[in-house]
Computed example of a mutant assay.
Amino acid sequence: MERAALAGHLPVLYAQVLDGLRVVGDGTYLDGTFGRGGHARGVLEQLGPEGRLLVMDKDPEAIAVAEREFGADPRVSIFRGSFAQLAQWDATAAGLDGVLFDLGVSSPQLDVAERGFSFGKDGPLDMRMDPERGESAAEWLARASEKEIADVLWTFGEERQSRRIARAIVARRADTPLVRTAQLADLIASVVPRGEQKIHPATRSFQAIRMYINRELGDLEDGLDAALARLKPGGRLAVISFHSLEDRIVKQFIARHAKAPAGNRRMPVEAAFVPTLRDVSGAVKADEVELAANPRARSAVLRVAEKLPGAADPLVRSADRESRATAFPGGAA
């Protein structure tokens, strides 16, 4: 595929995603994280007149791009919302031949200071992928307890200085509200020793707050279940993740459905394990050519799985995760 044809946007692991999805001309494919449509364009180019492309995104700006560029194509349907809701979209009810999730924050979101995702660009401390719904990062930091902030920084960012940072945030907000990204980034840098680490001291904290505000890990778990429920036998699931928390969830999800759990001779023998997924690719990473053109691809990991016959509906387990999320209302636990 020619990347130059993708309207100036360079999607990560473009060729590997399209190879993994194994697009057929009359198939139905869902891009759950449209962004600016790089991967979606590639899928659409391979579809015939009977094929269908379903696109989703939380971000209203991404949806506006999708409607402007693809809205007139009768093969394309567009839905604003999280991919966690994909099984609730009537357009998926007939089954899907492929599902793509490209996780995390997109380059356009990072590049616009007003979205509040980047500690390198001063802007409102927002961080919502859908800025019209839910609580902003500034609003949450203004009310959350010191313990809750520390727990979020540790759980979602694996930030070792989480308690020190949370203590500093609570102390600072008593005098001055934290409403700008530069305020928060400077505060974190002032209390976290940089040492020999190459990344900015605020990197993990910004990641953690963003993931919590947008319920990213909870949505990922729900979205994986929904994708498995809607995929047809032989359909492919492709997921690109950018850090270990996401990739671990995806890897364990595929393994749980592809491999029998380890036996325990002290426990009664249960029903024979029936795999519902086949691990197609393992962990796929960008090659040196792509890395030279797109450094953001350095941390990207693609995993592809294929649905096998006999899969049970995994959505019945979604209620089990609701209780795990109560420790962080509005976020994933």
Rank of each mutant, 00 (worst) to 15 (best):
A5W: 03
L6M: 11
H9L: 12
P11E: 15
L18M: 06
D19E: 15
D26A: 14
G27F: 07
Y29K: 03
G38K: 05
L47F: 06
V55A: 10
I63N: 04
A66E: 05
A66S: 09
A66L: 08
F70N: 11
F70I: 07
P74Y: 06
S77M: 12
F83M: 14
F83T: 14
Q85W: 06
Q85E: 15
W89I: 14
G95D: 11
L96E: 04
L96T: 09
G98P: 08
L100G: 03
L103Y: 12
G104A: 13
P108I: 09
P108K: 01
D111H: 01
F119C: 11
M127I: 01
P131H: 07
E132D: 08
W140F: 05
L141Q: 00
A144Q: 00
E148M: 04
I169N: 03
T181G: 04
A182I: 06
V192D: 04
Q197D: 12
Q197M: 09
K198S: 13
K198C: 12
A202Y: 02
T203M: 14
R204N: 03
S205R: 03
I213S: 00
R215T: 05
E216H: 07
E216I: 13
D222L: 06
R230S: 00
R230Q: 04
P233F: 04
G234A: 04
G234S: 06
I240S: 10
S241H: 13
F242P: 01
S244A: 14
L245F: 07
R248K: 13
A255L: 11
A258S: 06
P261I: 13
P261K: 03
P261H: 04
G263E: 06
N264S: 11
F273S: 05
G282A: 00
K285E: 00
K285S: 01
A286D: 11
L291R: 08
A292S: 07
N294D: 11
S299I: 14
A300L: 14
A305S: 07
D313H: 13
D313C: 10
D320F: 14
A332T: 04
